[in-house]
Design a protein around this nucleic acid. Structure first.
Lengths: 346, 346
DNA sequence: CTGAAAGCGCTTACAG
DNA sequence: CTGAAAGCGCTTACAG
């Protein structure tokens, strides 16, 4: 690239600039930067004023080199939906704003045997301050084990309480699905179908078990032929609904463990000449953008993902910011739209 | 966090470790690292072997401090669709793999008057090596002007050829829409509707103009009452289709400037008792995940976004890697699915 | 083709 | 409450 003209602004201020102007050593400026109590109040004020005046911010690289860790937080994920990732990123960035930390993204493929090594290189080479683990990689004990070996902080976002309190964020999938089941029962449904996610996902188990538990609590037993293991994909939702809607008696309501599969139910119903919710009520999970766009709009379970991201980042930075690292738990809520109604009188 | 046991692996190798073991100065190791030709072949080989043996990688923070820039690439965007952002991130990361660079994300809100200053702080404080600008922030001249002031490299991804060759990636929206129009005409449609994006987006103008140009080239003039300015949202697609489908004669095909709005056409058609593509053919833009899930599956224009991200990152790193910085252009292609057919004989 | 010295902008460890 | 020295792991500028 061609040489560019010098910046119009004055040269970037460093810790030396501030120290010289304040008539103190750079160590004192450093103390102010790191909130050390060992600085006289008037000294601190003078230094802070100078920092503001010169728009000074410490160089994260120099700081990182001295601290022996970077000011980077990693987000490690394995292909959840795009909306989930993006919301998570927004949430993490909400928490990082003004802290000097930045977010670096690291997608990985947990089906590859070497993905843990890939994450190891990532955290080691970049000397990451910490990482946030999103399902399903958050469920992998070999990954968290490696991070402990590497002395890298982490927070696991998961549907159950994995790991110790300071490192977990619990999303209460089971509880949310119990409530979804209660809602379905309250409308009067007795023949209810279930399309679960793939059982290698902990969330799939939690959601499926939760839903059945919720029905059982209200005296409804879900028949084995009304449960189908899907793959969290649209196509698997279509296949699952085809299977369930062929049963006799036909279920009057179906719960799908995510919205993609719930959308698949719409397609299968449409093809069979069945209406939603007239012939079959549908309920999903995620409140993806899809949910509001389906016609009729989909009743679904919503986890506030952006808030999850924010809380996870806050937990990760708690120690650095001298706050207590308390375990976090966030509950989803049911978003009632138009895809459920009482069953037709039979 | 509690102190953790020391890592099981040996201490991390530094440039000094390698230099000592190779019996050379660290400057020589540095030369190998930076592909300097001023190293004897056998010296280079010995150093490289040692690096491999000790799994050595230079510390990006130390390197960055000395180089006066970090090894971070910023992705600056203003709320395009989640899938677009995520695909872009994957693409950028494809190009960064193995280079020692990492990707940091920076969403911003271009409606806020201070967003350019926000990006300025971001690039200055982190000493970013460069940034990739995604529409619509890529279209903002005040942003690129600021980056030049800050001497920060950038690449603009845009629907037209903005900026100088070494800083632009052209996505040919106009050409793609011309071809979409030709396709619609080739099916025999004469009464064609258009739902554009908001005119403050350059892409909206390019797509709309391109589509009209393509029709004109085949002797079809798009009537003013068959053009509607949408907002790139599902709801605006519904509203647009409601307006267009009420015209007489009713259009037999509608092109929407993105898939969200195209999905809105489906809903409007369904409500009016019209079938897609029997009564009205629909064509979208983006090939979002939605497109394949609609029923019938949506014919749409697909930009390979991941490839765009990869090429943009390669262009940004060209200078660093001693490659020529040639302008990049990527053409979308038409994905024909089930939402278009010839018009009914009238 | 190779190296000793100085420096990037911070912090730790020690001294007072 | 404050500071001088040394160091984090690299590179630039200079010398040979």
């Amino acid at each position: 690239m061609a040489r560019m003209p010098p910046a119009s602004k004055t040269e970037k201020a460093t810790i030396n600039t501030i120290a010289r102007l304040a008539g103190v050593s750079k160590k004192t400026v450093s103390r102010v930067l790191n909130h050390s109590p060992l600085v006289r109040d008037d000294t601190r004020e003078k230094v802070l004023a100078l920092m503001r005046e010169h728009d000074y911010a410490p160089d994260p690289q120099a700081r990182g080199l001295a601290f022996r860790h970077s000011f980077l937080i990693g987000l490690v994920f394995d292909n959840p939906t795009a909306q989930y990732i993006v919301n998570m990123q927004y949430g993490v960035l909400d928490a990082l704003a003004g802290t000097g930390f930045e977010l670096v993204v690291h997608p990985s493929d947990s089906r590859r045997s070497d993905y843990v090594e890939g994450v190891r290189q990532f955290v080691r080479r970049q000397r990451l301050y910490g990482v946030i683990l999103v399902p399903r990689v958050s469920e992998d004990a070999s990954l968290s084990q490696m991070l402990i070996e590497e002395q890298c902080r982490y927070v696991r976002i998961a549907s159950i309480e994995l790991d110790e309190p300071s490192r977990r964020l619990h999303t209460h999938d089971r509880r949310a699905c119990i409530e979804a089941a209660h809602y379905v029962q309250s409308l009067g449904h007795r023949h209810v179908g279930l399309i679960t996610g793939p059982k290698r996902y902990r969330s799939a188990i939690e959601r499926g078990e939760g839903f059945k538990q919720g029905l059982a609590e209200r005296g409804i037993e879900l028949a084995p032929n009304l449960e189908y293991e899907g793959g969290y994909t649209f196509e698997s939702g279509v296949a699952g609904a085809d299977a369930l809607l062929a049963q006799i008696p036909r279920p009057t309501a179906i719960f799908a463990a995510n919205d993609e599969m719930a959308a698949g139910i719409y397609k299968a119903a449409l093809r069979r000449g069945l209406t939603v919710p007239g012939d079959v009520s549908v309920i999903g999970y995620d409140d993806s953008p899809l949910a509001a766009q389906l016609w009729p709009a989909l009743t679904t379970v919503r986890l506030p993902v952006r808030e999850v991201g924010r809380k996870a980042a806050e937990l990760l930075l708690a120690e650095f910011q001298n706050r207590p690292a308390l375990p976090v738990s966030i509950r989803p809520n049911l978003v009632v739209r138009d895809s459920c109604q009482p069953p037709r009188a039979s």
